[in-house]
Design a protein around this nucleic acid. Sequence first.
DNA 1: ACCCTCATGTAACTTGTTACATGATTGA
DNA 2: TCAATCATGTAACAAGTTACATGAGGGT
Lengths: 197, 197
Amino acid sequence: MSGLRFAMLGLISRRPMTGYEIAKEFSGVLGALWEARHSQIYPELKKLTQEGLLCYETAISGEVLEKKVYSITQAGKYVFMDWLLSDEEEYRPARDNLRVRLFFCEHMTHDQLHALLEREMGRHNTRLSWLAAKLDEKYGQQAPMENLPELGDYMLLQGAIFRERAYVDWLSRCLLHLGDIARGGTGVVDAGSGKSE
Amino acid sequence: MSGLRFAMLGLISRRPMTGYEIAKEFSGVLGALWEARHSQIYPELKKLTQEGLLCYETAISGEVLEKKVYSITQAGKYVFMDWLLSDEEEYRPARDNLRVRLFFCEHMTHDQLHALLEREMGRHNTRLSWLAAKLDEKYGQQAPMENLPELGDYMLLQGAIFRERAYVDWLSRCLLHLGDIARGGTGVVDAGSGKSE
DNA sequence: ACCCTCATGTAACTTGTTACATGATTGA
DNA sequence: TCAATCATGTAACAAGTTACATGAGGGT
């Protein structure tokens, strides 16, 4: 079930790493896809080692400080590749508090609902701008064509942008609809359903 | 933190319900936003009752079968409304296995990556069609203008559609890019970034 | 001296999932 | 009588969060 162990196996398959380094990875690009803190990582490393999917060597930093450098085993590689190429239908509808709030919008006044949507749209817009800037900064006009890990990063960034933009578009549509209600509109829907400007 | 308790309070605030009925609600529209099974619902009902947010009466179905009909208390209403109108920044990046797989696409061949994207796009497309049909069936050309609970449902359905469409658009863009690579393209990005047809 | 980063863990708790367990009611 | 639905729980486990706890290394 858990994607965490596979993310960890994948990272370590790139190069041997310490738990500390793995934890750091989860605050980068990967962290946007899957959160994990060191308190979850260290026990999982232990577990994976016990299962024979990882092994480690103890190294010394400076004079005494010990660190465990983990490497992936053959068994680990098989398990990882098996997961990577497997085909399980697994649809977890993201638990989204905003949507639950909307489900109960009957308890809100028109203004409260409006404020909620505006506020949330602002947040997603901020994130969208940040992501777009990042994409531009990293790839500009040149999308990666060869380097596979780079391609992954590029697609993921692109995916995050599509996701945030869809969120913003949706909320702005809700706000339009809400404004329409306030002006005593008819509720008649125009032809397209989102793709029109 | 947990949205579950608030979803439950919200449901019960509409009308008194049994645990069984609440569980059923979570397999309808609400279930698409937040999953919960009866094994989580019954203990939570007990907890909410102990905290004084709910109370219940025992009713009899038929001759002997007892059921507990829960109602929301004043304290429960306050807690629910407080949550509903509160403003907490809470961004949980959905844990998405496909994205983690993509993060490690370096281990896939071109064809495997292509198959993965196609497969996933098919699934999201199916869901998108289903959602679009449902929207048409429920609201057709007439969007709800007055009834607030209806408006919530409408917006949520709309939101699910935007989400699925964004997913499909993203994946189809990835597939285009991948095809471009296979044909030995240059990687130069065209002007727009998604909104163009 | 002080602070930041490196480095590794555990404990207590909340959330969520799967499986086990039981029994009444209703309609075909 | 048989199956679907109504009805309520518990147990064991997996996953994830927050807080606690400790200490070395490196630079200012």
